[in-house]
């Protein structure tokens, strides 16, 4: 089992950093572009996704020994669709304003690839607790990604954060426009890549120098 070699903390961090669905895997970008104009929207959708991911992972992990391998994918889809409908109904009933601002995206959680991916790769092979931790990590990673993109766009576009006026003016209204989501994500992914290369280079040079030192 892959989980035995990793601690729960590593599992949790993995979803947030190494396999961040938005910045590293570039999966399920549609909401990240479409409705991340404010931090609040990001948080709301992020929480919805977190719930769906955790509940589906737990469900699949519980019944993993009874799933026939040939109907694996339909079972996953059914599970996710059920939980998405549950979240959809609950949001519509108790948080109508939030539901309105998220629009069609709540229902589209069904087709978010990384959720299915996580069910197949992890939850179907591990026990309940590690699956739950893994799902939490993944969900938080998505939440974080949405919040960061939303924060940048809201701050630059409207000069506010969470609705509070921070800057007092609108530095670049362009970022509030829907199309700017692509640019925000593009530049942020580039920044992540750059940081990674710099980090790796540093590591390899230090190791290289150590190796050359050993060679001498």
């Amino acid at each position: 089992m892959s989980s035995s070699s990793r601690t729960n903390r590593e599992l949790f961090i993995n979803g947030i950093l190494n396999e961040n669905p938005i910045f590293r895997l570039a999966l399920s970008m549609c909401p990240a572009v479409g409705i991340s104009t404010t931090v609040m929207n990001g948080i709301l959708l992020g929480i919805a996704v977190l719930f769906v991911q955790v509940f589906s992972s737990c469900t699949i992990s519980l019944i993993r020994n009874h799933i026939h391998p040939r109907i694996r994918i339909p079972t996953y889809t059914l599970t996710i669709a059920t939980w998405v409908t549950v979240i959809d109904l609950v949001l519509a009933a108790f948080f109508p304003t939030a539901y309105k601002s998220l629009g069609i995206f709540v229902r589209l959680i069904v087709v978010f690839c990384f959720i299915t991916c996580r069910l197949d790769v992890f939850a179907a092979r591990n026990r309940l607790f590690p699956s739950c931790i893994d799902a939490l990590g993944m969900g938080c990673g998505f939440l974080l990604g949405m919040v960061v993109v939303g924060g940048v766009r809201e701050l630059l576009g409207m000069g506010t954060l969470l609705g509070y006026n921070i800057l007092g003016f609108r530095p670049m209204f362009f970022f509030a426009l829907p199309a700017a989501g692509f640019f925000t994500i593009g530049f942020m992914t580039a920044a992540f890549n750059h940081m990674e290369t710099v980090y790796n280079r540093k590591k390899s040079t230090s190791r290289g120098s150590a190796a050359s030192g050993a060679g001498l």
Binding site: A26, A179, A180, G181, F182, F183, I185, G186, F187, T189, A190, A191, N193, H194, T197
Partner: peptide
């Protein structure tokens, strides 16, 4: 530019 290769430049073009 190296950091932009792959996904980032694709996003910017889509934008």
């Amino acid at each position: 530019p190296t950091p932009f290769r792959g996904m980032p430049i694709a996003f910017i073009i889509t934008g």
